[in-house]
Every structure is written in C-alpha cells, then in structure tokens.
Design a protein around this nucleic acid. Structure first.
Length: 597
RNA sequence: GGUCCGGUAGCUCAGCUGGAUAGAGCAACAGCCUUCUAAGCUGUGGGUCGUGGGUUCGAAUCCCGCUCGGAUCACCA
C-alpha cells in the first residue's frame, strides 16, 4: 500500500476515535503539500466538519495531535486555517526508496500472456506525398500511447493503415508518366516519398494551368474542371487500376515501393515502428462485402440510383453514404473493411485510432456502423483525437507551400542540436560517432518533448522560424539533468564511493535531504500518470518537475558544501533513483536520455 | 443552422475527479562559473483565468446563458 493510502486509513481511524463516526474515504481529501508550507501531505478538513461539529482549525488540530501520537508514520504536523499539513517520517520514505530500488521495473505492470490486447492505429499516411508536421504529432502520440499502454501491462499491436489507392496516387503516377523521363530515386538522389510528392505537386500545377486556360476561353470554373483532359486521364488511370490493368498496377507498385522506402527512413529517424501494416488496396473489398451484407440484412438501404446508405437519424446523426451509385467504396467503407480484417487477424479487446480531431464525426459514425453490423468491438472503439498543428500564420496549406516537411524538420533539429552543443563545448574530446549520437538524441528529444508536452486534444502552434528551444521546459533540460546525475554516479564510482545497500537509518536528515526524499515520492506520481489515462502530456509535466527539482536541490547542495560522507552516500542513492525515474518517464515518450551531453 | 472542441501572463503552455496567495518556460531586467556539467541556478516586473449568472463554507475547475475562435455535418480521403 502506498503512503497516501496508509495515511488515509489513519485519518479514518483518527476520526472514528475522536468523533465516533465512520468517515467515508471520499471525505478524506489528501493532497501534496504546497511548496510554501512545511509538510508532505495536506488533509483538508472542511469535508469533515459535519462529523467533528467543530471549526476547521480545531478539527485540524485534534486530528493532527491524534495522528502524531498514534500514527508512527506521521512525524510532525502544522495547521493553517482548515488545512492540516502532515510530515511523513524519514524512515517511511527510506523504506519506500528501498522498495523502489529493489524493483527494477517499479511502477511498470508486467505484460502477462493473457493481458488485454490493444491495437493502436497511428500514422496512416497517403502514398502521394511525404510525411509532414501533422504526421509527426500523430506518430509521436501514437508511439507514446503504445508505450504508456505497455507500461500498464497491456499487450499492444501497433498498426498502420496506408492509403495506397485512389485518385491522388493516380495523379502522381500520371504526372510521372508524362513528364518524369523515367526519373527514379536512384537516378535523382531524391527520397522516394519526396519524389512522388513532387509529381503530385506538378500534376496540380499543370491541372491548374489547364483549367485557367479553359477559363480564359470563357468557361466557368466548374466547366473547366469538367472538361480537363488531365483529370479525365487521371480518372481513366484509376479505372484501369481497378480493372487490374497490368501496366498500371506495375507502375503503381513501383512508385508505391519508392514511397515506402522513404517512409521507412522517416519512421526510423523518429523512432516509431509498426507490428502490422494494412493497405487500403487490400481492405476496401472486404468493406464492400460487409456493406452489401448489411443491405441484405436490412441494416442499410439502397437508393434508386444504386447508392447504399445508412440511416443514422435515430442516433441523432444524418444519413451516411457507404457505396457510391457506381458501386465504388468511400472512406467509411474502407474503414469497415479494415476493421473486419484486423479482428479476423487478432483477438483484439480494444481498438484505438490515433487520428486528428477533424475526423471526430467519422469515428462517431464508424462506431455506430460497426455496432450495427454486429461487431462487438464497434461500440467500445476509442478515437484518440488530437488537435491540429498550426503555424503562426494559421493552418498549414500544401498548396501554398507552407507545409513543414517531417524529414527537413528532423534534420534541422539535429543540426541545431549539433551547433548548440559545439558552441557550449559539449562535444570537446568526444568521438565523431558519439557527437553524432548526442546531436541526434538532443535534437529529437527537443522535438518530441515539444510536441508531446502539449495536451493532445488541443490545437498547437509551431513556429518554424523560432525553432525549438533547448532551454527551460524542454526535452534537453531533462536529458541534461539525467546526464548530470549519471555523471555524479560515474565520478563517485571512480572515487570508490559505493552505493550503500541500506541507507543508515540513524542518519539525521537535513531539511534539504528530506526535500530530496520528498521529491522522490514524485516518482509515484509519474508512474501513476502512466495509468489508464491516455494524456501523455501529463507525464511530460511530471518528468519536467522532477528534473527541475533535482537541479534546484543540486544547486542548494553545491552552495551548502556539506561534506558528511554518510550523507553523501545517501545522496547518491537518491540521485540514482531520480535518474531512473527520469529515464522511465522519458521512455514513455520514446525519448532517449544520454549518459553525458 | 445542428453537433463537437477550445479561450489562463506579451508569446508557448501547465493547472480543470472543486480547496490555501492561479503556476512553468520563453521574452525583459538584475545577479551567480578556482569546488562533482552555466543546455543550469537565484531574484524583479508581468493576470478582471473570454463574459454574465447559478451551485458551494470555498469555483480557473461543476451547471446554465452569451461571446469569440476552430473542426465537422460530401457520391473527398
């Protein structure tokens, strides 16, 4: 049982002994004591006044006095207004530290073979353009979420649905065929996904020019788009693709292959990976089948023009199209098919989709449709919805070229990290390989933490010009703190200062050291945040608090220059724990913590 | 118009299962490197928590109205 729970029980006992009434656990509000006051935990007495029938100060006073006498873990108390501040005996903290030290995976639930299986879908790119900043947020959230779930003892299957079919790919293919002169990633030295993206942009450019020319002849915008030869060719290509035309399929496979090779590099750089990748080209037919089954079973209905619809007006939503009048599938159809295949492949207990909040409605509908089709998992699916990444000027627009490319961003972060490190002399005397590695860890740490510390559901602003800070509430700050702790441990080892198995219980602790001990209690909080709650940003805040507190205490110690060897050993034990704590919190983000930087 | 989400310091964000004087970082200013990493530390200034009401001993936090911003309601994905 943790300290807070034990304390809660003691308070219940105290209330019973003092006032003869059984207090409910919900009435015992304990919180960590604010920095300005002395104590570790604070009992708020207001909810207990009805039982005590005394004023807040008196009640606090009486409970405090009782706890001091009868509860060994309480070493001290003070009363401020209705708040009872309780200090926990150092021995209790030390006991906790020993416990933590004795468990290498303290706070992490081991993953049992029969643990619930969570499938998490994230990333979900289109194959006609490279990954951008929005994908970066998606990938990092998805990956972190998986780590949090694993830390909670869940079995996790990371999955990705690649949108590899449709008119947008045909546009790239067509442009390449017309104007590409056989360009390949090898011949041009371009990353495959960027190459394809360039042709997508080229198509758009040519199409716009064509449309403008037609409009100059007096056609309306709609007419021009209708008569566009390019667009007609693209549609023709899509038809050929669906008809399994060998040449089209070959080109499609080749170009998608280039894109995948490019994506793999980006994923690797970001440190994310997948256990199973699905392709819409392989799932949309299953979706069609499911929808047609739905029609047969009277769940959906067909209109005169042949299109298939779901009536969701009873659920307070609109009608939703599932198959076009020409029989082709829409986005929703594909998602139904993908869901079916996934549940055929894995015994999934919970399905989580990491997808932007512009699709909140889509997933609301998907959940209902899957449920109607008789899939148990439909009702309980989770849409892990996150906000958009905006630029200071507003939204990113691919047409205006304001999209922040993922590869460029990562490279820029690493370069900046290297420059900063060099300026600060951090790379002096370090081998080139090690310098590369540090620059990579710090650059990516900065990027990842910057994105993950923001509440996922909120839109966030990213200013590429200011680039990401390396000071303050940042990834590098935490990495730096970790490196310093490791450094202390390293130097201690050189001087043969060994960590004591059991800290000397008789050692008197200074106020500062007790503070350090209290900081360690924050470890519990970090781990608690990994709980079933999915807000990964909270973990970031705790990690930052922990790192900050270490730096402050470290600073205080330096000033105090205390040189008692027993205390010194004790400090080392604590440092080791803080280092481990930071590392664990960061690992949930996928952020590496270097030994030195 | 319906539905959903957001509005906290100049900027970027915490805090929201109700609790003490609303917190960090950045930016500004003033200090701190013979002593285990200054990517650090200390201090100063900076707030009608969008707004009006309600519930409560107590509201940034819960409820209702209003307002501003965003998303969505496609035979696009």
């Amino acid at each position: 049982m943790n300290i807070e729970n034990r304390l809660q029980h003691s308070v219940i006992d105290a209330v019973k002994a003092l006032y003869g009434a059984e207090a409910d656990a919900s009435q015992i509000t304990l919180q960590t004591t604010k920095k300005e006051f002395k104590g570790h935990y604070t009992l708020i007495t207001f909810p207990l006044l009805k039982i005590s029938k005394k004023n807040p100060e008196q009640t606090a006073q009486e409970i405090g006095e009782y706890l001091l006498r009868n509860c060994p873990m309480v070493s001290e108390y003070n009363v401020i207004k209705g708040f009872l501040n309780l200090s926990i005996a150092s021995a209790v903290w030390i006991e906790l530290l020993r416990h933590i030290d004795g468990h290498p995976h303290y706070g992490f639930t081991p993953v049992a073979d029969n643990a619930p299986l969570y499938m998490v879908e994230y990333s979900s790119p289109n194959t006609n353009k490279p990954l951008h900043l929005g994908h970066v947020r998606n990938n990092l959230l998805g990956h972190s979420l998986c780590e949090v779930l694993k830390a909670n003892g869940k079995r996790v299957v990371k999955t990705n649905i690649v949108n590899d079919r449709g008119i947008h790919i045909c546009k790239s293919m067509l442009a390449w065929k017309k104007w590409g002169n056989g360009e390949t990633p090898q011949s041009s030295g371009k990353k495959g996904d960027h190459l394809i993206g360039d042709y997508y942009v080229l198509f758009d450019k040519k199409y716009k020019a064509e449309s403008a020319a037609l409009q100059a002849k007096g056609l309306s915008k709609e007419e021009a788009e209708e008569q566009s030869a390019l667009m007609r060719e693209a549609r023709e290509m899509l038809r050929k693709w669906e008809a399994d035309d060998a040449e089209t399929i070959n080109l499609w496979k080749t170009m998608n292959g280039w894109v995948y090779a490019g994506f793999d590099k980006t994923y690797e750089k970001l440190g994310v990976s997948f256990d199973k990748i699905y392709y819409e080209s392989e799932t949309y037919l299953a979706g069609k089948e499911e929808v047609l089954r739905g029609v047969k079973e009277g769940i959906f209905y067909r209109r005169e023009d042949g299109s298939v619809w779901a009536d969701l007006t009873k659920e307070g939503l609109d009608e939703k199209i599932l198959l076009r009048s020409d029989g082709t599938s829409v986005y929703m159809t594909q998602d139904i098919g993908t869901a079916k295949l996934r549940f055929d492949d894995y015994p999934i207990d919970k399905m989580i989709y990491v997808v932007g909040n512009e699709q909140n409605y889509h997933f609301q509908v998907l959940s209902i449709l899957l449920d109607k089709l008789g899939f148990d998992f439909g009702k309980g699916l989770v849409h892990f919805s996150y906000g958009m990444v905006e630029l200071p000027e507003g939204k990113m627009k691919s047409r205006e070229g304001t999209v922040v490319d993922a590869d460029d961003l990562v490279d820029e972060m690493i370069n900046t990290a290297r420059e900063t490190s060099e300026e600060l002399g951090k790379l002096d005397g370090v081998s080139p390989d090690e310098a590369d590695n540090i620059a990579r860890m710090v650059g990516l740490g900065a990027l990842k933490y910057f994105i993950l510390k923001v509440d996922p559901k909120k839109n966030m602003t990213f200013n590429p010009k200011e680039s990401i800070d390396f000071n303050g509430n940042t990834g590098p700050f935490i990495q730096y703190t970790h490196a310093r702790i490791r450094s202390i441990l390293r130097k201690a080892a050189e001087q043969n200062i060994v960590l004591p198995e059991t800290p000397d219980m008789a050692t008197e602790l200074s106020e500062k050291e007790e503070g350090l001990v209290q900081m360690l209690a924050g470890f519990d909080s970090v781990v608690k945040q990994a709980g079933t709650e999915y807000n990964v940003s909270l973990i970031g805040n705790y990690a930052y608090d922990l790192a900050k507190e270490f730096n402050q205490f470290y600073h205080d110690f330096t000033i105090l220059k205390e040189e008692n060897i027993a205390l010194r050993n004790f400090r080392l034990t604590l440092s080791k724990n803080v280092a481990e704590t930071l590392k664990k919190a960061m690992s949930l983000f996928g952020i590496e913590v270097p030994d030195r930087m």
